[in-house]
Amino acid sequence: MKRMINLRPDRSWRMMLTLLPFALLLLVYILSSDARLALNPNDKLLPSFAQFASTMQQMVFEPSKRTGELLFWQDTFSSLQRLGLGILIAATLGLVIGLLTGALPLVSAAFSPLLTVVSLIPPMALLPILFIVFGLGELSKVVLIVIGIFPFIARDIQKRAQEIPAEQLVKSQTLGAATPAILLRVLLPQLMPRLIDAVRLSLGAGWLFLIAAEAIASTDGLGYRIFLVRRYLSMDVILPYVAWITLLAFLVDWLLAWANRRLYPWYHQGGL
């Protein structure tokens, strides 16, 4: 028998082992749900899959009686729009601030300490201010996401910019480049794949701020829906919504990882 640290699963074994915990969780849920429903057919805490299907059927395919909208898609669209806009603005802001503070010591001296302080402010504590200043509409939700994640992206990009070997900057100068050309042609392209990495890492926080903002003040959105139906103990809505949010988060992350490999092959094959 080999030592444990030397045992590696082959392909089919790996697949089995990957699926195993998911299957176990599912099994535990089905068994507990069945047990509860056998005792009380009106139990709302652990709905059966048939209940999930009929509820989601309504939300996905049938227009709401009150507004005439397909609620599930309306919620998904609103949330993704807020998240996408927030992430896009935060990434742009983070890239510009990170690049300038990472590459130019003068800008760094002026703004790095401020950036550190800003990044330490808990964004949720600012939410009331955002509501007061920007109202309860879309703007304050997007701003919360931006404020929540841009300092992280900016600091990460700043650090990555400083990690680019000084030799490259010296080399550019000996080829006659002025500062803007070095920023645009040497640093910026090398920071792009790192920016995508930073965005991937901050997506979790982005979802957190999105759902928090929607839970507090909104009229649609995935987070709004979950917190709305909580009053009726509608686990048949909440659990599918959570699964859907998880799937969306996974897909966005996967898409970014794929795009990163496609767009910047040199970054992923030890090109440094």
Binding site: P165, E167, Q168, V170, K171, T174, V186, P189, Q190, Y264, W266, Y267, G271, L272
Partner: peptide, 13 residues
Amino acid sequence: RGIVFQQYSVFPH
């Protein structure tokens, strides 16, 4: 003045 370093002198991207 042109320069060739021991490493890192070409642009990886």
